[in-house]
Amino acid sequence: RRRAGGAAALRSAGAPAAPLGAARGARHGGGAWGRGRRRRRGESAQELQAFRDYGESWYRSRKGLESRFQPREPLARQPQVTAEARCKLVSWLIPVHRHFGLSLEALCLAVNILDRFLATTPVAADCFQLLGVTALLIACKQVEVHPPSVKELLALCCDVFTRQQLRNLECIVLHRLDFDLAAPTVSFFLEHFSQVRLEARGADAGEAADARSLAAGVAELSLADYAFTKYAPSLLAASSLGLADRLLRHRSPLDLRISGYPEGLLRDCMDQLQLLVCLNGRSLSLLLPSEVAQKCPWLGDDR
């Protein structure tokens, strides 16, 4: 019997077939879950206060920067790098970022750096993976306390690249992007919409948290798919949350109107995301915290 969503698709596209983490242990005293994820669950009073003071302003400023940082057809000019190769690379970066306990924010930034660089510079297929780890390194230097070391990153590529090559490429990327690195991310907007939802009267904190987790998984998955580079991060975030609410059959779903997008656009993006979810149910279930995965039996359990 054929099961939908069981295609383990991203996996077959190049992500490692087996779990990560055990071999290396967690670097920063945390489990295999990214710090960002854990922090999110135990949201502090201090951060909540900061959101009340500035949340609206954070949203407006990021929203204003969105189009400037949106990569435009990053592969249009690439002679060698294909959408399939990009998918492979990002599907590999997903477990890599989890392996280091990095935040979703860092991953989103890395993919943004990757895409915007691809839009400016033709890259040979054989240094594409180096570009991937370089983008990750730059993203981590921006938002993480302890970026992975160059040595660790090179080891992940089986030491086919040298330290000097990585450092050179880092310089080239920084130069090409003119140090424009502070891109608004899907991770920021997920956080924002979820926070707004929590602040509303009669909010269901449980539903909000589940939707946020599932949506984060969906958004993470969408990073690997070239088709989603055309959507703005805020649209992806709103649509992921909308889809999560729908899939989880929530009684009080997020009012997607707060995203400011017309219904048609949201519906289109949600449909695409649903298709993605249905093709990658297995992979998605692996990206979710188990308590959320338990609520998504339809993700497919074939093996």
Partner: peptide, 18 residues
């Protein structure tokens, strides 16, 4: 659901931690 998440998880906890 638990079984779904169990196999081949890319986020299995490191030994001795988590």
């Amino acid at each position: 659901g638990r079984e779904v998440a169990a196999d081949g998880s890319p986020v299995s906890p490191p030994e001795g931690q988590g």
